[in-house]
């Protein structure tokens, strides 16, 4: 067998593996999309994406009120009423903390920095019970403004992003800060006039990741939201799954698909930022 034939087999093998794995990754999602347009008795009759009797019944049912208390639009609004503050607070507070760590020397910096890094490895499970007691004593459990879910992000508690921004900040030359300082710029002005614009790709990537993770968050709402009218999408989908699974799959799947649609749109609009963000943040280890 010649070198050329061998190469061809190797190439064929590579594409074969890539397509096969890609199919496993994507086919369930495509199947989900097609199932939302199928009739309930058709959904599990085969694995094909082809729809024999296309229907919008699943979507119509998905838009119905649920127990009179909450519908999908309300749940969507509820979700974004804490996701948006969470994203904004995380980005601003993390950038400020990263600036402090990345650009200044102060007493105890080494100790504080190692504490910051070690909280990266602190499992949330350990903190859940006392945090719940704390929020409960503040009256934030089932708060109308979801304070227990997002308020802590005002204080740069999402260490992963602080760490990531410090890594990015290292690549911005310090000369720029110093030049601005000589020109009479205060340190805060340096942050928002010089550092932030240069850091913009990193800030966008932090915002995108926090957006995705906050939308996916299930345990937060599970612990801190009790009133059905305040349910976000994650609880709403779980609720209707428990109620409808078994007889109305197209409704449940349509609901699920609608719930991740905003995330899918954001992902496809900004996929390069995701990939760049994750690559640049992690590699330094």
């Amino acid at each position: 067998m010649g070198m050329k034939a061998q190469n061809r087999i190797a190439t064929f093998f590579k594409y074969f593996v890539l397509l096969l794995v890609g199919l496993v990754m994507i086919y369930p999602l495509l199947w989900m999309v097609s199932a939302t347009f199928k009739e309930n008795n058709e959904i599990f009759s085969g694995i094909s994406l082809w729809i024999n009797n296309p229907t919008l019944q699943g979507y119509k049912d998905a838009l119905n009120d649920y127990g009179g208390a909450i519908n999908i639009i309300g749940a969507m609004l509820n979700t974004y009423s804490y996701v948006i503050p969470k994203v904004i607070c995380t980005v601003i507070s993390s950038a400020i903390a990263a600036y402090g760590f990345g650009r200044f020397n102060f007493v105890g910096k080494k100790v504080l920095f190692s504490i910051m890094i070690s909280t990266l490895f602190l499992p949330q499970v350990v903190l859940n019970v006392p945090q719940f007691m704390l929020y409960n004593s503040l009256g934030w459990v089932d708060s109308p403004f979801y304070l227990a879910i997002w308020f802590h992000t005002l204080f740069a508690t999402e260490t992963y992003f602080v760490y990531q921004l410090i890594q990015f900040m290292r690549s911005i030359p310090v000369d720029l800060d110093e030049a601005a300082k000589i020109d009479g710029c205060g340190s805060f002005k340096i942050l928002y006039k010089i550092i932030c614009p240069m850091l913009m790709p990193a800030l966008v990537s932090c915002a995108l990741f926090q957006f995705m993770w906050s939308c996916n968050d299930f345990m937060g709402p599970l612990l801190y939201v009790a009133t059905p009218t305040k349910y976000p999408m994650s609880l709403f989908v779980k609720l209707s799954m428990d109620a409808d699974v078994g007889f109305s799959w197209n409704r449940v799947l349509a609901l699920s698909l609608i719930s991740i649609l905003p995330q899918l749109i954001v992902f496809f609009c900004a996929q390069d930022q995701f990939v760049e963000g994750i690559s640049a943040g992690g590699v330094k280890g």
């Binding site: 507070s93 400020i96 402090g100 504490i115 903190l127 204080f155 740069a156 340190s187």
Partner: peptide, 21 residues
């Protein structure tokens, strides 16, 4: 001056991490 910038983080760490821990 850097301490001023990480002050929010210090508060957050003490209230939402160290104390529950």
């Amino acid at each position: 001056l850097g301490l001023l910038y990480i002050l929010p983080w210090i508060i957050g760490f003490l209230v939402f991490k160290a104390y529950p821990f």
